[in-house]
Amino acid sequence: MNPEIVIIKYNAGNIRSVDFALQRLGINAEITDDPEKIKNAAKVIFPGVGEASGTMKYLHDRGLDKIIRELRQPVLGICLGMQLMCRFSEEGNTSCLGIFDTDVVKFREGKVPHMGWNRLEELKGDLYGYSEDGDYVYFVHSFYVPSSQYTTAVCSNGYVFSASLQKNNFFATQYHPEKSGTTGETILKRFIAL
């Protein structure tokens, strides 16, 4: 039987956190890099803490890059997962999956990494309700996606960048919903309910 929800397994740090967060919501997911299971799952989560070029190579070597690109069910990329769903990343000058036709660039001002709790603003799209407008969520990243037509929430720290993206069935958050307290749980629940 194919699992309802899969978390894509790759050589990244702390992907267990997402699984633990889902368990707290009473949801059992499977962590896997099996292409068939990923293709046939009802929902796919593409988490991430790690480095872009090494991760893209890992995905490519297993043919997962092509599979992720062609998924038709709801997909949620988190942090590095979101960045890898873009076209190109300055981190390791990496060609990424190209789902979102936009690039990932390095922060050139302020303290890097952008680490801690920051606010979600200008919310739109299916992941959000009115209640999360202005809520704090947890970020930790050194590269960012500028605001574009795919942006569904922005965040600012003297400069404005994408806190989340959406295009058709592809959703992505720069922040970690699995570490963002009750606000994060609400957002994860909404993705699961899509």
Partner: peptide, 8 residues
Amino acid sequence: VAENINIP
């Protein structure tokens, strides 16, 4: 802790 706490 990781299983149960929803902050970093």
